[in-house]
């Protein structure tokens, strides 16, 4: 057994050449392909991570915006509710005011109508009383009624104050005696005598008739009037009734 060193060296050179060639044409290209793909995968993973980060950021922004929208919606709803409540209160207040105004107007109108009705009723009652009084008077003796009113007139003159009696006596244009019917001469003389006794001195008398008095005898001067008739009594009663109501 012997070793051929020429063959040993030649085989060593062959293997070295093979190592070099395979390193160049096999190991490096395949390893480079692996490395290249690993780099590509790394890049893809990095891009994916970046995209995921961006997506997470966008999701966070969307979530924040959605929360903002929800808060804004809540705020708007609250404001709208407040506005609606204020408007409703305002409308209710206006409606109440208008209703109160209508009620007040209606009440005033009702009072006015009641007053008008009462006045009309009073007028009708007064007219009815006048009619009754006229019918009742028609059954009485006119002279007796007249003398009664004369007596009442004399009493009224006596109840006047001294100043009033003085103003009657000093009437420049005389005294107008108003009666329901025309007074005859005898009654005029009697009446003139009675007034003269009541006033002391007597200015000129003028006798006129007025059926509106119903019954009675009144004195009128330009500055003075002494009512003494059923017509004035009824007017006084009607006023009293109106004031009483």
């Amino acid at each position: 057994m012997s070793i051929d060193f020429w063959s040993l060296g030649l085989q060593a050179v062959n293997v070295i050449i093979l190592i070099w060639l395979l390193s160049r044409f096999f190991w490096r290209p395949v390893a480079a392909a692996i490395s290249k793909r690993q780099d590509a995968v790394g890049t893809l993973l990095s891009d994916a991570q970046t995209a995921k980060t961006n997506a997470d950021t966008l999701l966070a922004e969307v979530t924040t915006a959605r929360e903002g929208i929800a808060a804004e919606r809540e705020t708007m709803l609250t404001e709208a509710a407040k506005t609606a409540e204020i408007a409703a209160n305002l409308t209710l207040t206006n409606a109440q005011k208008q209703a109160q105004t209508l009620i007040d107007t209606a009440q005033l109108e009702s009072v006015r109508e009641a007053d008008a009705l009462r006045a009309e009723l009073t007028a009708q009652a007064t007219q009815l009383a006048v009619n009754i009084a006229q019918k009742l008077l028609s059954r009485l003796d006119t002279a007796v009624v007249q003398s009664a009113f004369v007596g009442l007139l004399v009493e009224a003159i006596g109840a006047l104050s001294a100043d009033d009696r003085q103003s009657l006596r000093a009437a420049d244009q005389g005294i107008e005696m108003v009666s329901t019917l025309d007074i005859n001469e005898q009654d005029k003389a009697t009446l003139t005598q009675a007034l003269g006794q009541a006033l002391g001195s007597l200015p000129a008398l003028t006798f006129v008739s007025d059926s509106e008095l119903i019954a009675g005898l009144e004195i009128k001067t330009p500055h003075f009037a002494l009512h003494n008739s059923w017509q004035s009594d009824l007017t006084t009663i009607a006023k009293a009734l109106n004031h009483a109501e």
């Binding site: 057994m1 051929d4 063959s7 085989q11 060593a12 293997v15 070295i16 190592i19």
Partner: peptide
């Protein structure tokens, strides 16, 4: 070739 002593010796030498 590996059945020959020179080839294996060359590999071992490397």
């Amino acid at each position: 070739p590996t059945a020959q002593l020179e080839t294996d010796a060359a590999l071992a030498l490397l």
